[in-house]
């Protein structure tokens, strides 16, 4: 039987939130108590899943080469040799393939959408070689973890941009998503870039011109504001940010 104190210690241990002395004491106790050890294992697995909530960033490609070079691996690396499938593994492989196929559908959709933005980015670059077009992915602020995706293109030379959103929560009645440009020189005075219209599926699109020019946009942000009273400065919670 595990009491609340032991549960607390197991949870804190899983998050690495115990002091070294407390950690040692807990691990001694868990070593003598299989049920507690099992709980500690389970909570460690649960805690590890929190890593997936970090804003997704792919490491630069040069890091891979650096790591592999450091460990003495021959470069370039190919794919690991594929082991021949056995009957015993056939069912598992089939299930895995089905799961991967389902994931591919979702991944393919995301990939296509992002490719489309990249393609549009390229088209805009081609249309105006002087333009400084940037692609920014807006990420949910960690303390809010609002679901949905948002990405924008910003043309510094033209002082205009375009934002697209997908699967954002439909705002409560009387509320709307407002876009802001935070200029590096005036961070305390975000520039209103307009209200992002959202349909009932959370999809939206806005071509915008900030209310004031921004020579050096340090960030773009979406906050939730009262619809009837367009804010001159963000008053509601900031839900998405791109720096």
């Amino acid at each position: 039987m595990i009491d609340e104190h032991q549960q607390e210690q197991a949870a804190l241990h899983a998050l690495g939130a115990l002091t070294p002395a407390e950690t040692a004491a807990f691990e001694r106790e868990a070593a003598a108590n299989p049920e507690l050890a099992r709980l500690a294992d389970d909570l460690r697995e649960t805690a590890a899943a929190l890593a997936h909530t970090a804003p997704p960033v792919t490491p630069p490609a040069h890091l891979r080469a650096a790591v592999l070079e450091t460990i003495g691996a021959p470069i370039p690396f190919g794919v690991a040799p594929r082991a021949p499938a056995t009957n015993a593994h056939a069912a598992a492989i089939w299930l895995q393939s089905a799961a991967v196929a389902a994931l591919l559908i979702l991944g393919g959709w995301l990939w296509t959408d992002r490719q489309r933005l990249l393609h549009e980015n390229e088209e805009l670059r081609a249309a105006d070689t002087l333009a400084q077009i940037q692609l920014r992915i807006l990420t949910a602020t960690p303390d809010r973890t609002t679901p949905g995706d948002a990405a924008l293109l910003w043309n510094a030379a033209r002082q205009e941009g375009r934002i697209e959103t997908r699967r954002l929560p439909v705002p409560d009645k009387g509320k709307s998503y407002q876009l802001w440009v935070i200029d590096a020189a005036q961070k305390d005075h975000p520039i209103n870039a307009g209200v992002v219209p959202i349909d009932d599926r959370g999809a939206g699109e806005l071509r915008f011109h900030p209310a004031r020019p921004s020579a050096h946009p340090a960030a773009f942000a979406i906050s939730l504001e009262p619809s009837a009273d367009p804010a001159l400065a963000p008053q509601g919670p900031v839900l998405f940010v791109a720096q």
Partner: peptide, 21 residues
């Protein structure tokens, strides 16, 4: 992270992206 994510999208693998997403 948000700024860096813009450079990340070019190298993501669809299946892994879907899995992590």
């Amino acid at each position: 992270a948000a700024a860096a994510s813009a450079s990340a999208i070019e190298v993501t693998d669809a299946a892994l992206l879907a899995q992590h997403h």
